[in-house]
Amino acid sequence: MKGKSRLAVLLLFAFAIACKEEKKNGGGSAATGAPRNAPLQVEAFIVKTQSLSENLEVPGTLLPFEQTEIRPEISGRIVKLNIPEGSFVKQGTVLVKLFDEDLQAQLKKLQVQLQINAKTAERQKELLSIGGISQQEYDLSELAVNNLKADIDLVKVSISKTEIRAPFDGRIGLKAISDGAYISPTNLITTISQVAQLKMEFSVPEKYSDIMRKGRMVTFTIAGTPKTFNASILATESAIEANTRTLKVRTIVKGSDPLLVPGAFAKVGLKLDENDKALIIPTQAIIPQARNKRVALYSNGAVKYQVVTTGIRDSSYVQITDGLKLGDTVITTGLLAIRPESKIKLTKVQ
């Protein structure tokens, strides 16, 4: 019993010494760091006015001003092929000639018949003037003449379809047929592109659709050169794409340059809005909420939250249209650790 009493006394004595030592050191937290109520060190920004513009960069594609596939209207055998691949041709140049000797023979036959019937109609006209024939007989001879003229015109149209011509000035693509081949309207002969003038297409988010007006200028760049090119909006799609929520825009490229090749990728720069005296704060100072946006406003060593309305923005700053005034101080760092009425110490102010 005496041994157990002595052990209990020793344990109580050791506990008393430990408590005394803890009080002397001011608690466990003081031994490892600053006091619990130390101010939170953050950086801040003083609201000011500055020229601000909002720019948007979207991908685009260069296209020929006009491009079409060359196909025959009728079936036939190729007797002459004139497709200079990769070269420019003038409008109306004969690219392909199909066999037409049967049509030419039919045309000659009809022309001979027309001459005979025309002479017969002339003689019957003279007979009609002296009462040698009736008016009906003369009308039938005139009808035969007119029918032959119509048949001749029809054959001439068929002959013209045996000649496939360039629909406009442009560059010929690669040919898909050879001389002597038999082709039909389903066969692709080649393509022709009008590359002296180019178009460019790109898409913008639907919120910018109202400012994509005809005549608006845009700038763009292409890979391999730092040069900037210009284009003007020609038209926009009639409806917004439901899957991507974007609006397709078509522009006309200003001028020509050997670097601009149809199908090339382009980076399109759009200057959407500009304000010479915008009230700005850094973009990282904005705290997005479910229904609004707010900032942490510094005042007399403490912080309070202020709901704001934003306007245009660039990569670094955002315009504040409501909620702040010139000279206010907003906190830009430590926003996740700050609580309302937190004690704040500013380490850097911009």
Score class of each variant (00 low, 15 high):
L247H: 03
S51T: 11
K207E: 12
K267P: 04
P59I: 09
K161W: 06
G180F: 05
L326E: 05
K267F: 07
T228E: 13
I130K: 10
T221S: 12
E274R: 13
A144E: 08
L56F: 03
I78V: 13
V47T: 14
E54F: 09
I280V: 09
K97A: 14
K199I: 03
R6L: 04
A121M: 09
I159W: 04
P262I: 06
Q124S: 12
T225W: 15
N147F: 01
S238T: 10
L335N: 00
A296P: 07
M212F: 07
S129C: 03
E66T: 03
V94E: 08
V308M: 01
N300Y: 02
R213T: 14
T332P: 00
G76Q: 13
P262V: 07
D314W: 00
R339F: 15
V94C: 08
V94Q: 11
I331H: 14
S158D: 15
K345G: 02
D139S: 12
I116M: 03
I177L: 08
L107E: 13
N117D: 12
L56Q: 01
I159Q: 05
V155E: 00
G92S: 08
K48G: 09
V157L: 12
I338C: 05
K248S: 15
S256C: 06
P185K: 08
A296S: 06
S129N: 09
G173A: 02
L107C: 10
S184G: 15
A337F: 03
S29M: 07
T120K: 10
G27V: 00
P258W: 11
N55K: 05
P72C: 09
I222V: 15
G311S: 05
G131C: 01
S129W: 01
N147Y: 01
V155G: 01
E54S: 15
A278K: 04
K207P: 04
S29E: 01
V155T: 07
L247I: 08
S299E: 05
A242Q: 08
I133L: 04
D328A: 02
G28I: 01
I252A: 05
L143C: 07
V112W: 13
S141Q: 06
L98W: 08
I17T: 10
V268F: 00
K325Q: 12
K267Y: 04
E85P: 06
Q91G: 10
N243H: 11
V157A: 04
D328T: 02
V79N: 11
A14D: 05
N243C: 05
F220K: 08
Y208D: 13
S299I: 02
N187R: 12
P226Q: 06
P84D: 01
K97R: 14
A16D: 03
L110W: 08
A302P: 00
V195M: 12
V261Q: 03
K48A: 09
G173K: 07
R213A: 15
A166I: 02
V295W: 01
I130P: 05
G173D: 02
Q91F: 02
F220L: 08
S158P: 03
L62R: 04
